[in-house]
Design a protein around this nucleic acid. Structure first.
Lengths: 206, 206, 206, 206
DNA sequence: GATGAATGAGGGTTCATTCAT
DNA sequence: CATGAATGAACCCTCATTCAT
């Protein structure tokens, strides 16, 4: 059977570590957590396993993370941060210019991400739904949304708000087929996502 | 913290209930399970809670379901069955005929479903991923896919297989915004989904 | 893991059934119980299984036996009764006469019993140790003992009391090898038991 | 009533404890288990009771034993090891020499054992039958058998294999009367066992 | 700071027994 | 009387978290 328990959730790292040693510690733990998640899924994602994998004692783990959920939250934050950074980077490439090129760049940034984290992204997003995530993650998501909105508005697309929401959802949905189709088909997937996105934008059917 | 455990999973109802009393029992338990899921999510979805909510003893619960997972599985099966039935119904309406009308009927059937089960559908789908679902559920999903494929092929759309997959994913993704937008906006959501679907199909961008 | 639970133990049949129908009921239940015990051991020896095997409702089962243990106790009583009867019969055969013949007859009666009930005898004897057996079973065991004592005394063997105890224990022990050696070797087993018994009796080593 | 359940059985201690603290823990738990077994029999032999008796949490118990059965198995292994060691010791005493002396030494080693563990030996042996014991216990039993066989062969006794089996069974059976006769009568019991064993060996009745 | 042994609440599951029909 | 659905105490086991060393 499946068991899911809940206690009070604390999602902020106990201390913002600044010393190099601490950072190393934190990084080690997060890496181990990631590996566990990839290999065994949520089913074996427990603090003891993580600590062991990290070659660290549970005690130490709790020195840097106030709870198991905080580890998850940090993993999520990391990914979101990376994603946001990549999106920003893709927007700032000034060699593009026209709408299609810019959008394509954004789509491919997204896709690359999903390819990179194919194994864990779904698990982490689920956790994100269950956890009381910190405001900063909300902010990051908001920023991503705004990037897309800005792009749309810059090129005169109406209802940019809703459209942004929808195409993000669409890209997200299509990238979930990565685990099945394998990483190889990047090109094809990209094409399908573009078809969906541009189709949605350029169409005004009903 | 979040805890997730795993043992052997048994997902078939213990007995196919035919007596009115049994059916009532089964229904009561499933209802209670549904309520728990809606109100408290997976976190409090445990046999004791379900039994209590159902006004029944755990023992009785286990008389009708061999395991907690079996309850989940049944919930999933129920929804899938209803969905499949609605899709079939929508296809059989002969007052339609042209591609757009047929597709729209299908989209709206799907959407109606997501509206009806907005609260739990995500949770159940997650569970579906974790559980070793029975073959019949696989079959049902396959049939849904085939309905869409058939529709596409009937109207000469190429790569029906992949296209079907993608537009299903797209509709699914867009319907996830239901919980936020509320049930009221059925019309608008329908329009957005059509825009996405027809956009994808009619576009051949890259 | 192994779980063994205990509540109050009631080992007497709820009613001394005299009506033919009741007797049939009782017999049916006991037969079913015996079959379950043989096939699945104590692990599946539960009232529901017994009732089902007997083609009877649990309720009915409890009409005739006040508890699960009472069924076990009755099974034990039955076997003990049969055993005692056979021992008595073997003693009453007047065609024997000399010590060796009489003893051999007794040994073979015992052996036959163990062969007949090879599958369940150990399980039942264990249960007998755990259950608060009724006095009548104690009496029966006492009678068996007395039969052996009488035999020994009739032929002038000293310390008949202790000797009887010991040779009973010895025969019992040796018959436990039946399950391994198969039923076929009745002759050989008989010979080994005689060797042990007569050896013990005729020896006065230390 | 009596309830007996079965799941997968894991009988090996979770970790081979080397640290003094661990050893203490393991010893404490085993002692508590032993006490529970003596006082309340299998009926109250459950992990909670054991942990409580040991003044330890269930969690700790499970840190050192993977399952309830593993505790039982360890108890059994302990006794078997001690027994085997004593048998070997008794064989190595070189002040003996003749068959009777050697055999007597072995018998008394055995007897001492049964006296020491009178309360629990039967329960543990039953458990041994029910549990999927590890190979090492089988090996130990085999070694005990071989010691007896070797003794017999060394003194030219025929069918040493069968004879060994039988006299072991006989000694075992006779030592079961210890609980009744009390520990005091060691001498007398020893004499009876010798009478039985030498009687069996020297007799070739039928 | 680091360690990891210890804690114990929590949850799945079974089955002897009862009692309304 | 017979039925069998319902009950619920009991028991195994896990794992997030703490704290003495």
């Amino acid at each position: 059977m499946t068991k899911v328990r809940t206690r009070k959730r604390v999602t902020k790292p106990r201390k913002i570590p600044r010393q190099p040693r601490s950072n190393l510690m934190v990084a080690t733990i997060l890496e181990a957590a990631m590996i566990i998640l990839k290999k065994h899924g949520m089913g074996n994602f427990n603090t003891n396993a993580i600590a062991e994998k990290a070659g660290v004692s549970v005690g130490s783990l709790y020195q840097y993370f106030p709870s198991k959920d905080a580890i998850l939250a940090t993993l999520i934050r990391q990914i979101r941060e990376e994603m946001l950074a990549d999106m920003i980077a893709s927007t700032e490439r000034k060699d593009l210019g026209d709408f299609r090129s810019e959008t394509r760049a954004l789509i491919e940034a997204t896709l690359q991400h999903h390819v990179k984290y194919a194994d864990v992204i779904t698990l982490l997003e689920r956790a994100e739904d269950d956890l009381p995530m910190d405001d900063d993650i909300q902010e990051m998501k908001q920023k991503m949304l705004e990037i897309v909105i800005a792009l749309l508005q810059r090129h005169g697309i109406e209802n940019a708000n809703i459209v942004a929401n929808d195409i993000i959802a669409i890209c997200h949905a299509l990238s979930l087929s990565i685990p099945q189709s394998g990483e190889s088909n990047f090109e094809e997937l990209s094409r399908r996502m573009q078809r969906a996105v541009f189709g949605y934008i350029e169409n005004s059917t009903p």
